[in-house]
Amino acid sequence: MPDKDSQIKEWVEGYTDELFKWASYKLPSRETAEDLVQETFMAAYQSWDKFNGESSPKTWLYAILNNKIKDYFRKEIRNIVITESRLLPENEENSFLDIFFDKNGTWKKEMRPQHWITEEEDLLDNSSFSRTLHDCLNKLPALWNKVISFKYLEEKKGNDICKETGLSSSNYWQILYRARLQLRECLEKNWFKK
């Protein structure tokens, strides 16, 4: 068996590229992505004895990295929950939702969801659509983006996400609701009408 130092060096050479691309795709900044990739290798180095070769090193490293990314979002959201007294913008009841609905709560004409011309199944596995969605995610307010990113990384729902982040259930789904309204609108503008 090769010694630990040379083995890890080989992994750094072999997998840093890919891990870094994945991390920068998932995370809001390049610096955070670099930090978490570095921490991933440090963690792998420290728990090298636990790597039993049953999975490939790549799978193992990805698992460590994904846990670090989840921890990052969990902490970020928790911090915002603790420090911000208002999680939704002030007067938000009247401002954000008024972009979409009139005073009776009916869709405004220009915001009413239109039928998308592409069939649903053609949107899955469509890299260009996926990219537009990713760009739209990045245009969301930071907290909304983090909540969505965390939810889908954790692959969990409502109460579990609230427990982990400290968000109240009503704040959580009000954030998701606003984020989803904005995402859908952004996709319609940037993908279907371009």
């Binding site: 890919e18 994945w22 596995d125 996926s130 990219r131 969605l133 889908y152 692959e155």
Partner: peptide, 14 residues
């Protein structure tokens, strides 16, 4: 699509 983006390494690369 959001679920997919977590499982597949992105098939487009920045």
């Amino acid at each position: 699509v959001l679920e997919q983006q977590n499982r597949l390494p992105s098939n487009w690369q920045k």
